[in-house]
Amino acid sequence: MYTPDFDYYAPQTVQEVCSLLTQFGSKAKILSGGTDLMVKLKHGTIDYEVLISLKELNELKGITYQEGKGVVVGARTTHNDLVNSDILNEKYLSISEAAHHMAGNQIRNIGTIGGNIVNAVPSADLPPIFIALGAIVTILGPEGERTVPLEDFFTGPGKTVLAQNEIVTYITIPDQPTTGSNYIKFGLRRSGALAVVGVASSVTMEGNIIKDARIALGAVAPVPMRAKNAEAALIGKEYTDELLEQAGVAASQECSPISDIRGSAEYRRDMVRVFTKRSLKASITKGHSGEHLETEHGK
């Protein structure tokens, strides 16, 4: 295969990235892990004259906990960094598990959270769980920093609120009283499959009463979406399996999936029902655990 020619820059500071973006405009694209970008360049579905590599920007790597702020994840943090993070394993195993079920091991070693979010692929695995946990995106531009809730970040397939000369630097998961969170990826193979449906939830319980719930769906709308009707059906109610089923039905009604080679809209809608129910149950009963479809081999 063939990768078209481009100019390559590897700036030393984030500010330099912004000024290169300003200089080259729409001809330039940021190269983070490149696991998606390189494939699209090879397939010829996109073409850029300039790639701006983030390889020198080590400050964008890593996961830290900042008192009063929450868990801060640098945009260049790889999927396997999420999987192996002690902080996440302790606080939000659901994020580690969501990362764990992405692609294959080699891709997880290179692909970054920033790339996964900025690509704005509707089936991306990380946005739903981050949205369910109320994550905030920190964006740097020539005018300085701004923050946007991740849930408002996406504007369409491949489209975000990022201006041409802006870069995502961090994702922050604010401290929260949630009881549990969870992401279920439903793919057609156990590795190396895109999500046909992705459902994330986070729930705050007070005794048996659902005090708060956030549900985020992937691959069933032009952007990762909150299932607000489903949430409304839950909040303030006593937890029962029947209630979760009702929430599942509500979520399946408010999403807007399309039919493609991975599944029909009808199938996706029903899978939203099933996995919303299952994800909620895991969030309520198992805390911030990972709960996924896979059954252990050799049982």
Partner: peptide, 26 residues
């Protein structure tokens, strides 16, 4: 050549990666 099969796997800084979708410059 698109990161789907793993036959180009090499270990880079201790981690297995697909060398078909990594720029030499990177």
């Amino acid at each position: 050549e698109t990161g789907d099969c793993g036959s180009c796997t090499v270990i880079m800084d201790g981690k297995p990666v697909n060398s078909c979708i990594i720029l030499a410059l990177e």
